[in-house]
Structures are given as C-alpha cells and as structure tokens.
C-alpha cells in the first residue's frame, strides 16, 4: 500500500483551487482565440476580444478570471492501493478548499442551508465525487463551477422512442432557453444514459474533458460536432448580443441505461470553464 498523508492532500487541493480560478485552461484559450479570428459579427468580435483580455489580465495580476469562483467541485480518483493516513480524505479536501478560498482571495459562495441561507465563509463544503480505480495513485481535479451557468442546466427523462433526435432537440432547447444568461460562449456537457442521478454526473464529467479531444467513440464524436454546429447556428453569440460563437465545444459522456429509459442531461458551462488536476 502506498501511503498519502492528509496534509499532502490539503496542500494540493489548496493550490488547485487557486490555480484553477486564475489560469484558464489551454483548450478554452485556444478556442476563444480561434473564435475571435473567425467570428463574423462585429459586436461579437469585440466581446471576444474583451474576454481574451480578461483571462490574460487575470493571469498577470493573479486574480480570479471571474468573481464567481464557484462551488469547489472536486473529482477524486482513488487508487485501490492507496492508504490515506492522518485523517479522513473528505476532511482533508474540505480543509484544502477552505485554505485555498481564503488565502487566494476567492469568493465564498456557499450557504449552509438552501432555505436558511447563511454563508459558510470558507466556501466549504466542496462538492466531492469519488471514483475507486486501479493502482496506487490519487488523482484530484478541482473544477470551480459558477452559479449562473449551473442554473441553466437541465435533465430530461426521454423515452427510448425519442432516440438521438430527441437528444438533439433537448440539447438545443436547453441552450435556447439559457440564451444570454450563462455567459456565452459556453461549453456544453451532455450526459446520455445511466439513470436520473447518474446522467447529471455524466454531463458534469463531460466538462472535464478537453474540448480539443473528441469522444473516443466515433458515433458520439460525430454527434458532438453536429450539436456544436447546430448550437452555433442559433445566432445567440457571445454574451447573447448575436453572433456565430454561442458554444466553444460540446462534450458527450454516455452510459448503459434501463430498457425503459433514455435520460439526458445538459450541463451548461460558461466561457470560464475551469479545472486543474494533480496526481499524488
């Protein structure tokens, strides 16, 4: 068994929270830079130029790209040959989130009770997803997700008869209804299959994959490309002011499902789609 201490985990999560909020991932940068060159709408080009200047400024000044530094969504892949020593894994993660959000001057956006609504003042608890995997390493990804775009996510329990056309229509409907609200250009994570709860997790997981990297299954890769074209034909454009860049990417994750079901989840993410990973 390989031993990993809770101190190591806390320090790693602390660092990942700060870096994820300040440094925009390269795939999103490339997509924004490319869109700024190909966009046909004049207003849209101006918006894209400002968005690019913003992420550059955030990096230069080491300040968050967006003031909504999100809930800290933490994805953990824990190798079966790893022993966590010195405390509980989830406590160590939450301690890292608290330290990162306080030391990094990140916004604390979590309330302890959805109805009573008192701020927890350190952005905990994190939204943690655990996966037990092979091997002796611990992979931690921190992906802060803003509230504005998260509010635009949707789930449909489609019928098997709805098929791929039903999936396409639902994705387009979700993007259309979101309109300018989720800070387009957006990245769209789509989950297909599983069940009600699993499909939501799939759609979130889809956002962790680079938008340069199509689905390894050719059928789904084609569907991703087709959906991206259809979304960009809607004309919503950057910030909803009109234009050809409504989305920068569409990523699909799929899973086995029940004979009666075709669940579909659409996780809409803003142009500040952030994540940072470390392997211990």
């Amino acid at each position: 068994m390989k031993q990993i201490s809770v101190q190591q985990i806390t320090e790693t999560v602390r660092r990942l929270c700060i870096e994820a909020n300040v440094l925009l991932p390269d795939d999103v940068r490339r997509a924004l830079d490319k869109a700024a060159q190909t966009e046909k709408g004049a207003t849209a080009r101006g918006v894209l130029a400002d968005i690019i200047e913003n992420y550059q400024r955030a990096e230069r000044l080491e300040m968050p790209i967006c003031q909504d530094t999100g809930t800290a969504c933490v994805f953990v892949e824990l190798g079966q040959q790893v022993e966590i020593v010195g405390g509980l894994l989830s406590d160590a993660i939450n301690e890292g989130v608290a330290q990162g959000y306080i030391d990094g001057y990140l916004r604390k956006s979590v309330v302890s009770d959805p109805l009573d609504r008192v701020n927890t003042k350190d952005n905990t608890p994190a939204m943690i997803t655990y996966d037990i995997v092979e091997g002796d390493s611990l992979t931690i990804t921190v992906s802060p997700k803003g509230g504005g775009c998260e509010n635009m996510c949707r789930i449909a329990m489609l019928k098997p008869a709805d098929g791929v056309e039903g999936v396409k229509a639902f994705v387009l409907e979700a993007v259309e209804k979101a309109g300018p609200n989720p800070c387009p250009p957006i990245i769209v994570g789509v989950g297909i299959g599983g069940n009600f709860d699993k499909v939501a997790a799939l759609s979130k997981k889809a956002l962790l994959r680079s938008i340069d990297e199509p689905n390894p299954n050719e059928y789904y890769a084609k569907l991703e490309a087709e959906l991206l074209d259809s979304i960009n034909a809607l004309g919503i454009g950057p910030q909803g002011f009109g234009g050809g860049t409504t989305a920068l990417g569409v990523n699909i994750e799929y899973a086995p499902t029940h004979i009666a079901q075709l669940p579909c989840a659409v996780n809409i993410s803003c142009h500040v789609t952030r994540h940072k990973t470390a392997v211990l």
């Binding site: 918006v47 400002d50 913003n54 955030a58 300040m63 968050p64 300018p180 500040v272």
Partner: peptide, 30 residues
C-alpha cells in the same frame, strides 16, 4: 447585469424611463 429580464421589468423600464445595461459576464478581472 447580464441576461434576460421579465416582461414586467421591461414594462417598468419603459414606464419609469429607466435602462438595463449588460456588462460582460465572466470578465471580472477586466
């Protein structure tokens, strides 16, 4: 702010001679 407003808010902007502006969402550093 950013994003859509309700018809009630639009009507109120008209009746009260107001204005709704958008700033670029996600451009917090700028």
């Amino acid at each position: 702010g950013k994003g859509l407003r309700s018809q009630e808010v639009v009507d109120c902007i008209v009746s009260e001679s107001g204005c709704y502006f958008a700033a670029i969402g996600g451009a917090g550093a700028l």
